[in-house]
Design a protein around this nucleic acid. Structure first.
Lengths: 214, 214
DNA sequence: TGCCCGGTCAATCAAAAGATTGATGTCGCG
DNA sequence: CGCGACATCAATCTTTTGATTGACCGGGCA
């Protein structure tokens, strides 16, 4: 993908101008990197990635409320043949985010608090066609492998969503035509899978993992 | 505070190297600004602000788990006589954060997704001894003034934030060094102001109105 | 000075939520 | 067919939460 001697062509996708300037400052000073373009939205990143020829895309995940998510953009970009490598660069390292990014075809997952050397190292790794995970992220993935995936069932997510909307067990049971006992049973399972012990902490955990709509 | 002709001396306080580089890139290119130092922690920012002579400090709020919060640092810095102006620069614009920052003595509150011009403009405003609020932030404060009925107090927002984080009354009381009775009292007031009757629905309402950080 | 508001705390009762155990029916799969 | 996963419901008990009432203190303000 990258010819030796030719610089690595980069696309920066982040909604924060300051962060883009920082990435440019950090990466453009490397002799073998050249920042070709910036995108302030995920949609724009997809456009640019299709129109121009990049080696690596640095992709944020959050692009403000109502905007396309970085994961969708990553999937859209990597779906094409001869697509650039996508390095996800975000603030948070939640399981759901990491898995979603990897599933979407990301070549790496970095945290924004990473030191510049780690950043440029990861870009080189990705440009060479290999995977680049931040140490902290790799650690989380290992953790997850050890503990078997606890996916919530459709019904459980349905109940959890209503809990997040602020409904009581009583209200949920009416809404879903269930008994309160059943709602409680679902909640017990949800708490176990999320590793929490109350509805509010379940909502907090689910929010962080983006299991429910807010 | 600032002599005409002399450059504005800046201190950048943010735990993300990339963001610091971005701020430096954006601000250092302005002729009348000079970035004198950077701090990767709030503690370090307080030290530097006391030791050296700055005009404006750009202060992040979140410095990673377990670290001093930007608000504390802001209070510590502005408490001294002849202290520099502190501009809070953060990702979120929740009521609780804004109020806490202003109360801590911040001269302004900016969002990280602000365009560079807004950033440098705010720095100049702060250096001139005036207040600088991002338009989005100012709008929130206006909203809050207009509808005093549902205005939560600073303490109530603090409690509500912890509720949203999934903490029990017991945990909240320990965290804030209160009795559970006091936490309950605050909750009663919060429920009344938000027009709800349970913690989860309070969190749902607060999320919609962006009263708390999620 | 007196008053209100914000923050603090206590005691009590009622309601909701959580923990535990156990049971039934359906469905897909080897 | 038997087995496991999912969904449903019941009964019981403990813990947490919410409702209500009342009280104290400090600061700001008329």
């Amino acid at each position: 993908m990258t010819r030796p001697g030719a610089p690595v062509r980069l696309l920066l996708a982040d909604d924060h101008p300051v962060v883009r300037a920082g990435l440019r400052a950090v990466l453009d000073t490397e002799e073998d990197f050249v920042v070709v373009a910036e995108a302030a939205t995920a949609e724009r990143a997809v456009e640019l990635a299709a129109a121009d020829d990049f080696d690596v895309v640095l992709m944020d995940l959050q692009f403000g409320p109502g905007r396309m998510h970085g994961c969708e953009a990553t999937a859209a970009i990597t779906a094409r043949t001869g697509a650039p490598r996508v390095l996800v660069l975000t603030t948070y390292d939640t399981d759901a985010d990491i898995l979603a990014a990897v599933e979407a075809g990301a070549s790496g997952y970095l945290l924004k608090d990473a030191p510049p050397e780690e950043l440029s190292g990861a870009v080189r790794t990705a440009a060479a066609g290999q995977s680049a995970l931040a140490p902290a992220v790799a650690h989380r993935l290992m953790d997850r492998m050890r503990t078997p995936a606890q996916a919530l069932t459709r019904r459980e997510l349905e109940v959890l969503q209503l809990v997040g909307d602020g409904l009581s067990n009583q209200q949920i049971s009416k809404q879903l035509f269930l008994s309160q006992a059943t709602v409680k049973t679902h909640l017990v399972h949800i708490y176990a899978k999320l590793g929490v012990d109350s509805r509010t902490s379940a909502v907090a955990a689910a929010t962080v993992r983006r299991l429910i709509r807010r």
